[in-house]
């Protein structure tokens, strides 16, 4: 069984932490990921930096810019993940945009994911209609394609998306980009209930989740909460060792 499927097979509350690869220094990835795990993260998303991150707000945009200035490449990210894998069994998903993957070649990318023991792939600009072949190729290698749904996704489509994904889907909490403010809890509750009812897989929720209260609240309506921009924001402010670990601890307590 792949690690993501295994993790989401139990009912415990889950915290998923997002770290941009190659940020703030090119070789920071491993340290920050291990800090997040030490702080209590149940799963890690590693962001592949991209020059034109259209689904991201200013915080993750800045992290992307810094990482690209540091010269991080997709090939190096695979090496970093291999290195991280030697020290942890926590599920790791890559999150990025489609173009760098296309440039590498999708089959080559999937093979490298397999070699680096990556458990899932999240591509916000590759929606259902364009991703069938790619998702099936990932699943052939026992890697989970984590497709996204949004508050305006129709019920039927949630079903279709979760069916293709197979193991886990990612519910975007808001109409918007990463780091935006959350909408009213009332709207959110209705939306998450709709996802729960229609999804054939467990689902995690992300975008705009930044505090312990948020994490608690989202976990009571879903199978996991993703914190991204809030973590990156901490690192942008203070690069000291332990910042990520302490913040993740505060989210998990």
């Amino acid at each position: 069984m792949n690690r993501i499927k295994q993790l989401f097979s139990n009912d415990s509350k889950k915290l998923i932490v997002f770290i941009t690869a190659g940020f703030p220094e090119k070789d920071s990835t491993k340290d920050l990921v291990l800090e997040a795990i030490k702080g209590g993260a149940d799963m890690i998303e590693i962001g592949i930096p991209f020059s034109d991150p259209q689904a991201d707000g200013p915080v993750i945009q800045e992290a992307n810019e810094i990482a690209l200035k540091n010269g991080i490449t997709l090939l190096e990210i695979f090496e970093q993940v291999k290195d991280i894998r030697r020290q942890t069994d926590v599920p790791i998903a890559l999150m990025g945009y489609y173009n760098p993957i296309l440039k590498m070649g999708t089959m080559d990318f999937i093979k490298k994911c397999k070699d680096a023991e990556i458990d899932g792939v999240i591509l916000p600009d590759l929606p259902l209609d364009e991703s069938v072949e790619f998702c099936n190729n990932l699943k052939d290698k026992n890697i989970s394609p984590i497709l996204l749904v949004a508050p305006n996704t129709a019920e039927k489509r949630i079903k279709k998306i979760s069916k293709l994904a197979g193991d886990l889907i990612y519910a975007v909490s808001i109409l918007g980009i990463t780091g935006n403010d959350l909408s009213s809890k009332n709207n959110l509750e209705n939306y998450l209930a709709k996802v729960k009812e229609n999804s054939e897989t467990p689902f995690m929720v992300g975008f705009g989740i930044s505090s312990n209260d948020d994490v608690e609240w989202f976990n009571s309506f879903s199978n996991g909460a993703v914190v991204g921009s809030a973590v990156i924001k901490k690192v942008l402010k203070d690069r000291k060792k332990g910042v990520v670990e302490n913040f993740v601890k505060s989210l998990k307590k």
């Binding site: 929606p127 209609d129 497709l147 305006n152 996704t153 129709a154």
Partner: peptide
């Protein structure tokens, strides 16, 4: 009908924009 010009075109956008 899917907006493709063979391998070109399509809808590579966040799910939020699909509707």
């Amino acid at each position: 009908k899917h907006g493709h010009f063979e391998e070109f075109g399509g809808k590579y956008v966040p799910e939020t924009l699909i509707p």
